[in-house]
């Protein structure tokens, strides 16, 4: 299969992937930040600083996406990643699926 790489293609593919991964990490950080804040060991000033920093990160990523016009491709990469995760987890921990697959194979 010939790989067709032009500038646009590369941008949407590679940059989309990078930004999607950054977004995933950012979301994970956001959730952990919530947990730390709820944990109660942070001071008022630290919480404010943390919130501000994460907000800045949010804004920066949104700006990059808008500037590069890759909002759609980032979304599709994330959907793809999510469905892979969903599928793998489903395979590992869903008893109903085990039964179905077993039936299909005729065991």
């Amino acid at each position: 299969m010939p790989i067709d790489i032009d500038e646009d293609n590369l941008k949407h593919g590679l940059l989309g992937l990078v930004i999607a991964l950054v977004e995933v990490i950012k979301d994970a950080l956001n959730l952990q930040a919530m947990k730390r804040m709820e944990g109660g060991s942070l001071t008022e000033e630290e919480m404010e600083r943390l919130g501000e920093a994460l907000q800045d990160l949010d804004i920066a990523i949104e700006e990059i996406k808008k500037e590069q016009g890759i909002t759609e491709s980032v979304k599709s990469v994330r959907d793809g990643l999510d469905s892979i995760v969903d599928d793998v987890l489903d395979k590992m921990i869903n008893p109903e699926r085990w039964r179905k697959e077993a039936e299909e194979k005729g065991i």
Binding site: D27, A28, L31, D82, L89
Partner: peptide
């Protein structure tokens, strides 16, 4: 049924 990558990461962490 809709587990996402972020959910997975969050669970792990």
């Amino acid at each position: 049924t809709h587990a996402t990558l972020v959910d997975l990461l969050d669970r792990i962490l």
